[in-house]
């Protein structure tokens, strides 16, 4: 499992692995938002936490099809699936690698981008904590979507359609926690709900992902 994880990480960091793409996309979204809503800084401060969450979610979505597609094309996914490693472990490792490559950098970049959007100073803690708790769920749910569409040519758009509704609870609680933090309110409840969703998703969804991956590789 550790070998697989380090292999995925190495592949992602190497040229053409798309390591920085998600981050760049996140940056661009954040830069474009003021053009869309106007230069009113008070407005930016109010919507900053939501925009950052949405940007992180979209950046995460953008990189999902890489989880299985490359391995599927060159046949290594078949090898991995027939390896003694259970498929459940395989998809968990894939999700973990995706999170380390995409989710964690997004979390790290969020406070920097928050400066651009005038996020109130008291909001940073809640923002980072909510992203830290929420992005693993995004990666795991996304792995399920990627496993569903792995055999489909040009499945990217379909995968967005499948994955985005599944992101709704995570987004609601995550953005709500970040918003409450930015407004100086108590954010314990949404943060706990978010943590609950993430834990539940990590515990259960790999079984569904593994089931659909086995179907797709049949």
């Amino acid at each position: 499992m550790i070998a697989l994880l380090s292999r995925d990480l190495a592949l992602a960091v190497r040229a053409g692995g798309g390591f920085g793409l998600g981050l760049a996309f996140f940056l661009i979204v954040v830069v474009l938002v003021p053009f869309g809503v106007g230069p009113d800084e008070a407005l930016h401060a109010r919507i900053a936490s939501g925009i950052l969450w949405l940007g992180a979610l979209l950046a995460c979505l953008l990189s999902l099809d890489r989880i299985f597609a490359l391995d599927f094309e060159d046949g290594s996914l078949d090898l991995l699936a027939t390896a003694p490693l259970p498929t459940e472990a395989l998809v968990s490792v894939k999700a973990a690698a995706h999170w380390l490559v995409t989710g964690l950098p997004l979390v790290a970049a969020a406070p920097v981008l928050a400066i651009l959007l005038n996020l109130p100073a008291m909001g940073y803690g809640a923002l980072v904590l909510s992203l830290l708790l929420g992005t693993p769920a995004l990666s795991v749910i996304g792995t399920f979507g990627a496993a569903l569409t792995v055999g489909i040519k040009r499945g990217g758009l379909l995968m967005s359609l499948l994955v985005l509704p599944l992101y709704v609870p995570t987004l609601i609680f995550g953005a709500e926690a970040a918003r409450r933090g930015a407004e100086g309110l108590d954010w314990t409840t949404p943060m706990l709900m978010l943590a609950g969703i993430t834990c539940g998703v990590i515990a259960v969804l790999p079984f569904a992902s593994a089931a659909v991956l086995r179907v797709n590789l049949r």
Partner: peptide, 22 residues
């Protein structure tokens, strides 16, 4: 695939219902 999606989707639909309520 669709039946697994239906199962997972049902769970998330219920989750979303409570999340939206909140």
């Amino acid at each position: 695939l669709t039946s697994v999606l239906c199962l997972v989707g049902s769970v998330f639909a219920v989750l979303s219902r409570y999340a939206v309520n909140f």
